[in-house]
Amino acid sequence: MTDPANDRLIPLAEVMNIVGYGKTIIYRWIRQGTFPKPCHPGGSSSRWSEIEVRAWKDAQLAQREAA
């Protein structure tokens, strides 16, 4: 899925399901600049671009294959 028109904003629970890591490590990576930043569409809710999260995961797998 790379078509921006089909991109969804997904909650943290779905992000954790896709990447297989918990909230603490995801927010640590965000602070370190190594994970996509969330959007804040309203109030205090955070949502991530599904395309960006899946691209991050694909890059991690590609790094593993290159090593």
Rank of each mutant, 00 (worst) to 15 (best):
T2M: 12
T2K: 13
T2R: 09
T2N: 13
A5Q: 11
A5L: 08
N6G: 07
N6Q: 14
D7W: 06
D7M: 10
D7G: 12
D7N: 13
R8E: 15
I10W: 05
P11Q: 12
P11A: 10
P11C: 06
L12Y: 08
L12F: 11
A13Q: 14
A13L: 08
E14C: 08
V15R: 05
V15I: 07
V15C: 06
V15N: 11
M16K: 15
N17R: 15
V19H: 11
V19F: 03
G20K: 08
Y21H: 12
Y21P: 00
G22R: 14
K23E: 15
K23Q: 12
K23W: 10
K23S: 07
I25F: 04
I25G: 01
I26E: 05
I26V: 12
Y27S: 00
R28I: 01
R28G: 08
I30H: 05
R31M: 05
R31Q: 09
Q32C: 06
T34H: 03
F35R: 00
F35W: 02
P36T: 00
P36N: 02
C39L: 14
H40W: 06
G43P: 08
G43F: 09
S44A: 12
S44C: 05
S44W: 13
S46A: 15
W48V: 06
W48H: 04
W48F: 11
W48L: 06
W48A: 09
S49L: 02
S49E: 10
E50Y: 08
E50A: 14
I51K: 03
V53E: 12
V53L: 02
A55D: 15
A55P: 03
W56I: 00
K57E: 10
D58H: 10
A59Q: 10
R64Y: 04
R64N: 05
A67Y: 06
A67I: 15
